[in-house]
Design a protein around this nucleic acid. Structure first.
Lengths: 181, 181
DNA sequence: GGGACCATGTAAATAGTTACATGATTAA
DNA sequence: TTAATCATGTAACTATTTACATGGTCCC
């Protein structure tokens, strides 16, 4: 709901375009599936927070939405409310907690995958940061966006460091195990 | 499901006790509500992964469960599978992204709350670590648990650092605003 | 007796994913 | 022409939260 309003506050977009932006720019801290997005757009039309943008493009199947004044007000109101959603669920940590029930090699594989994924995230975030600093700032929001990117960089750095240390630890466990044979 | 099996692999527990442990030890990366927990326990009884532990305590309303060999097998099997769930949703970052639509003061409040919460988390985690290093390790799993705690410390450190920097940034935005009046 | 906490549970609502169906457009 | 991607949407399922009901126990 509010992601949609936020994105539309910058420019009119189709549902498909929103999904792509969310997957690209927000994936470090937010996600939406089509199964949420399209029904949500319908609800928001009903509530008159958004309308079909007829100006842009003779829509052949394509539905591009723009935000209404009511929608903008709703968005601003939301910004003032204290954030509610804060969800973190990492199955890899649950497995780590019970790791002694499996061999250290198994956990090594899991941690290595986690490491690879977040090293990639780090690369993407740094690249995104460089891009953002390079281009102009017509909406004067690059400062805010850089703060968000920086959050991603800091946390992913922490993940990567943790993975490295944990792999060492698991190597130690492995050595300890083979030594006793 | 697997949190339950994991906890029961250490000792028999009631649903209520599981909930308390999850809220205390796992809250940095996992959560379960009673609405999930109790129906799940019923399903797991049906599947014979757990049974009622009649030995311990004449149960007056209290239902303490223990893990069965089948449940243990299921738990070990799960440990071998690559972790699937990895969810992160932070509404505070979504607000930060669209922060320019509100005054910097509003975001300052949000970030300050986030900071306070995670400074507290950090304290709790460090205390938990000290405790763990102090007591004995009968299950030989303290090394694994310390890795999990260390993940919490590293990420919460990153959060706290980000908050400090972001508060500075927002102060700058605030000054910039008042200066233009 | 009353308040805090132990203890189990359910119903309803909300959130979110997955898998599918459909068809247009674009580029090799 | 065929594969990829654009584009919208729904149905079914699974996950998760919230709010409530109920009653026991412990201690002041």
């Amino acid at each position: 709901m509010y992601v949609i309003l936020g994105l539309l506050s910058e420019q009119p977009l189709t549902g498909y375009e929103m999904k792509k932006i969310i997957d690209l720019r927000f994936r470090f801290f937010w996600s939406e599936s089509y199964g949420q997005l399209y029904p949500e757009l319908k609800k928001m039309l009903d509530m008159q927070f958004i309308v079909l943008d007829s100006n842009t493009e003779a829509s052949r199947g394509k539905q591009r939405y723009k935000i209404t004044p009511a929608g903008h007000e709703e968005l601003c109101h939301w910004l003032y409310l204290p954030p509610e959603t804060e969800t973190l669920r990492l199955e890899v940590l649950l497995k780590m907690y019970f790791a002694k029930l499996a061999s250290p090699d198994v956990m090594r594989t899991h941690v290595a995958s986690f490491l690879a994924a977040h090293q990639l995230d780090l690369l993407v975030l740094k690249q995104f940061k460089i891009e953002l600093e390079r281009i102009e700032d017509p909406h004067h929001n690059h400062g805010d966006i850089l703060r968000v990117i920086d959050f991603g960089i800091k946390t992913n750095d922490a993940y990567v460091t943790w993975c490295a240390e944990t792999l060492c630890y698991l190597q130690g466990e492995h050595d300890h195990e083979t030594q006793n044979q």
